[in-house]
Simulated assay, not measured.
Amino acid sequence: MKLLWLFLFSMYSLNAFAIDVVIHNLDSLTTNGQKTVSTWINQSLTKTQNTLGPLQQTTLPIYLKPQYFVFEPVPWASVKRNNPDGLELHIDRYASLKAFTKDWTLYHELSHLYLPLLPYSGFWLSEGFASYMQNVIMRDNGVISQAQFVQRLNAGFERARLQTKTKQQPLNELSNDMWKQRAQQRVYWTGAAFFVEADLALQKQGQNVASIIKQYQACCRTARSSAKTFIKELDKLSRSSVFTTLYAKYNTRTDFPLVTKTQLSKL
């Protein structure tokens, strides 16, 4: 086992579900830090794939940006769209494996890789999916409980309801100007509510969002897509009109939807 770890560290890569995870700048950490971060990334990818299925790329580059004197395990992260897609992770170089595991950020960013790059007006879909799915992954894999799952989603929805009072533009327009408007709460969590409603509707047909995205990743995902094309693909895979119907309802809405804790508890 010791020789195996040494080999993994020398290559700065790990394998999970046949993906070669290449961790750049890992050698800037201590030996213990390298083991902690490598284990965290590998385990998080496995958890994500347990819920959403294998990523359809052979290599996943991870670009580490270790930080000093930060107050959370992963203060910032982003997707690096390329060939192949990768992630940039700004991390607390001294965080423990437990702290990394309980942080939602990596599950969020990994979820993004299951969707194509959408135009800015459709970012409410991509950010909504990642915001919802980070909690589904954590719940499915025992990182959080069902009660915590409900509480976290409800808290996000409450923040979005509050911001909607001052950010009342149509959702697609606000999504297009999200950073300038500082409207992330409304955009992210309205998108998450879309996928909650989709899951509740799909449940009645014996399906769920994760299973549809698993199929989409395996058969149909492109590097880029329009929002409408993406939605139509999901309807085709689910043999339903769930996604198209909800998209027509959400894309230009100016309010925040009513999603209750009772509904969330059914997921």
Results as ranks from 00 to 15, higher is better:
S78R: 07
L89T: 05
V79D: 07
R81M: 07
E88K: 08
D85N: 15
Q57G: 04
Q67A: 13
D85A: 01
D92K: 09
L64S: 13
Q49V: 02
R93A: 11
L60M: 01
L87A: 03
Q56S: 14
G86Q: 08
A95F: 02
S78T: 02
P73W: 08
R81A: 11
V70R: 05
I62W: 01
Q67G: 12
L52M: 11
L52I: 07
Y68V: 09
P84E: 06
D92G: 01
P54M: 11
K65W: 00
Q57T: 11
N83K: 15
P73T: 02
W76I: 00
G53Q: 14
H90L: 09
K80F: 09
I91K: 04
P61L: 04
V70D: 03
G86N: 00
L64I: 11
G86T: 02
A95C: 11
A95T: 02
Y63S: 06
K80H: 13
F71S: 05
F71Y: 14
V70F: 04
R93S: 14
T59H: 10
P73K: 08
R81C: 06
P75G: 02
K80W: 12
V70W: 07
F71V: 10
Y94G: 05
W76F: 14
L52A: 01
V79M: 00
Y68M: 14
S78Q: 01
H90W: 14
W76R: 11
F69P: 08
P61F: 04
I91H: 07
Y63H: 13
L55S: 09
S78Y: 05
V70A: 03
N83C: 02
Q56V: 13
F69I: 15
Q49R: 05
A95E: 05
V74K: 02
E88R: 08
Q56Y: 14
I62L: 05
L60R: 03
I62F: 09
V70G: 12
R81Q: 14
R93G: 00
P54K: 15
V79E: 09
Y94W: 10
P61R: 03
L87K: 06
P66N: 11
F69K: 15
L64E: 12
F69V: 15
P75K: 04
P73H: 01
P73V: 00
T51L: 10
Q57C: 09
E88M: 08
L55K: 13
L55R: 09
P73L: 05
V79G: 03
A95G: 08
Q49Y: 00
L52F: 01
A77Q: 02
L87W: 10
N50Q: 08
A77I: 00
E72Q: 11
Q57Y: 09
P73D: 10
E88C: 00
T51W: 10
F71K: 10
E88D: 00
L52W: 00
L89D: 06
V74N: 04
L89W: 04
F71L: 13
L89S: 10
E88S: 05
D85T: 01
P66Q: 11
Q57K: 07
Q56A: 04
I91R: 04
E88N: 09
Q56E: 12
Y94Q: 03
T59C: 05
L64T: 12
R93H: 12
A77F: 08
K65D: 13
P75F: 07
V79C: 03
S78H: 02
Q57V: 10
V79T: 12
P61W: 08
P84C: 12
E88H: 02
D92N: 13
Q57W: 03
G53E: 14
T59L: 04
H90D: 02
Q67Y: 14
